[in-house]
Design a protein around this nucleic acid. Structure first.
Length: 509
RNA sequence: GGCGACGUACCCAAGUGGUAAGGGAGAGGUCUGCAAAACCUUUAUUCAGCGGUUCGAAUCCGCUCGUCGCCUCCA
């Protein structure tokens, strides 16, 4: 009964506030730590500190890495779009067992491997339109900061040195398990705890590892060694964002143990809450199974970009909510290309309409519908993005506007009011596109890109020559010859579109 | 075994208390020399199943079935 009353009071309060309070703190983010969507309130008003776990540079990235990079890129863009001053930090793990193993296998230096795959990462990200972070620290540049934390943890009794190693004493940190919702005894009873005689407790994890001869090594109070995996993120985030910051992100597979361990290290060391909002993206699946290195069911970004346009990859990823699993397949990528093609086709119609600038003034029956949508577009877009970055809903909205714009153009409107209306539609979609990192090209650039990526073997000049050939045939009403040209191009994958005064072309997607 | 997520049309996918966005595919139509594109109509009285709460549930609660994830490196 009491809870019912409280619920009703809440409801009333919300109604009373109406649209008022919506604006300021309406952004809600799902927090893994609490398991709920929460209003986003930054530690420092107007500023956001955001740290996302980057990659270990030991191999080419797969599409799962792309998902993480893209969804956090969009979060960062949206936060900035909303007026926050964002400091976005994304690290590189450039020293690690996997890197060392790969270097040994190939007989090259470990830092050579790190350099190679860091470059490959940038190459992939540039193609996918993922912007660089504000700070991109490499683990090996922060050894001193890590040593400081490790030494501090030993001093506070949260860690101990054995041989040349240092371990975090998990049971000394009370909150251990709060992120992944686990308790220590359950973890203990789990079958797969690491067997290691040196550790006092099987759940303890390495902060610092002694280096074997030939391995990368740094001087430390515990002898030459290298950092454990988790400590780097504690050190680098603290250095750039402070002891406490707003958002920490990464793939859902990092929740345990990586992020759990980060919390333990950081909070045990600083005595302060580490992160306000923990944000994790869902996996990409293949045949319903998580894509992963160990299962071998992964596709590298390079392989995919060999066959599909990068913007289609981006659209594909953003057309599903970031926490949901997303099934990867060629068919899905194709559909994403088709959707984008629909956008670019409409975009082309808009360009032509504005260039033609039809004179006169005429009322058109579709005005009300498009005006309604135009006036509510920004609010609906923000509402979608405010709801835990719902890019799927946002893309739906964009295509509503695409349809409405097409419908309006079909009515053949004329005059300056019509021009303004169409420009408005274009500008609204473009600004939403900027937040999502989409729609950056002209329709012509899109067509050329698809033409190239399909390896059709025709260039634009060749297509235009064919169009001219067909135009001549059509002029003399030689429909057979005209259709032959069109069929020939269609067989190659190029479609012709006859318009009022010319014939356009596009690639069949 | 422990913890967690998900199950919406032929396919993909939004929707977390007020009566099912969007994209693709299919069917019919308008436009066109014919097409293509675009637009219109159409395709879930229903949201895995069964109960419950509520004036009202895809949305909240319980159970059942199914799928997947984490518990080990992993985006």
């Amino acid at each position: 009964m009491e809870s019912k009353i409280a619920e009703l009071q809440d409801k009333l309060e919300r109604i009373e506030r109406g649209g008022e309070a919506r604006k300021a703190d309406s952004l809600r983010i799902y927090n893994t730590l609490t398991g709920k969507k929460e209003p986003f309130v930054p530690i420092t008003p107007g500023r956001v500190g955001m740290y996302v776990c980057g990659i270990t540079v030991y191999d080419n990235c797969h599409i799962g890495h792309a998902r993480s990079a893209i969804v956090f890129d969009v979060m960062r863009r949206y936060l900035a779009h909303r007026g926050y001053k964002v400091t976005y930090v994304r690290n590189f793990t450039d020293v690690d067992d996997k890197i060392i193993n790969r270097a040994n296998k190939e007989g090259v230096a470990w830092d050579e491997i790190a350099r190679r795959y860091t470059e490959a990462f940038y190459d992939d990200m540039n193609r996918l339109g993922v912007r660089a972070a504000d700070v991109e620290p490499k683990a090996t540049d922060y050894i001193d900061e890590m040593i400081e934390i490790v030494a501090g943890l030993i001093e506070k009794g949260h860690a101990y040195a054995v041989g040349g190693d240092v371990y975090f004493a998990t049971r000394t940190f009370e909150g251990y398990g709060k992120l992944s919702k686990r308790d220590l005894d359950e973890l203990m009873s789990g079958a797969r705890v690491e067997v290691n005689e040196i550790k006092r407790d099987p759940l303890d994890f390495a902060l610092w590892k002694s280096s074997k001869p030939g391995e990368p090594a740094w001087e430390s109070p515990w002898g030459p060694g290298r950092p454990g995996w988790h400590i780097e993120c504690s050190a680098m985030s603290r250095k750039h964002l402070g002891d406490s910051f707003d958002i920490h992100g990464g793939g859902a597979d990092l929740i345990f143990p990586h992020h759990e361990n980060e919390i333990a290290q950081s909070e045990a060391f600083t005595g302060k809450p580490f992160v306000r909002y923990w944000v994790h993206n869902g996996f990409i699946t293949v045949d319903k199974e998580k894509m992963s290195k160990s299962l071998g069911n992964f596709f590298t970004i390079k392989e995919i970009l060999d066959k599909f346009d990068p913007e289609a990859v981006r659209f594909f990823i953003l057309s599903t909510h970031y926490r949901s699993p997303i099934e990867f397949s060629d068919e899905q990528l194709r559909e994403a290309e088709v959707s984008l093609d629909r956008y670019y086709t409409t975009s082309g119609r808009i360009v032509e309409f504005l260039e033609a600038a039809p004179a006169g003034e005429k009322k058109s029956p579709g005005e009300q519908a498009i005006d309604d949508l135009l006036s509510e577009f920004n609010e609906r877009f923000s509402a979608a993005m405010d709801d835990d970055f719902n890019t799927a809903q946002a893309t739906g909205l964009i295509f509503e506007l695409v349809r409405e714009a097409n419908r309006y153009l079909d009515a053949k409107p004329v005059g300056s009011a019509a021009m303004e209306r169409v420009k408005r539609a274009r500008d609204l979609v473009n600004s939403a596109g900027r937040v999502m990192g989409l729609f950056k090209r002209t329709p012509h650039e899109w067509n050329l890109a698809i033409l190239a990526s399909r390896r059709i073997g025709l260039d634009e000049a060749a297509i235009c020559a064919k169009i001219e050939e067909r135009r001549a045939a059509r002029e003399r009403k030689d429909w057979g010859a005209a259709d032959a040209v069109r069929n020939e191009l269609a067989a190659a994958g190029v479609l012709l579109e006859d318009k009022k005064d010319r014939t356009g072309w596009k690639v069949k997607v």
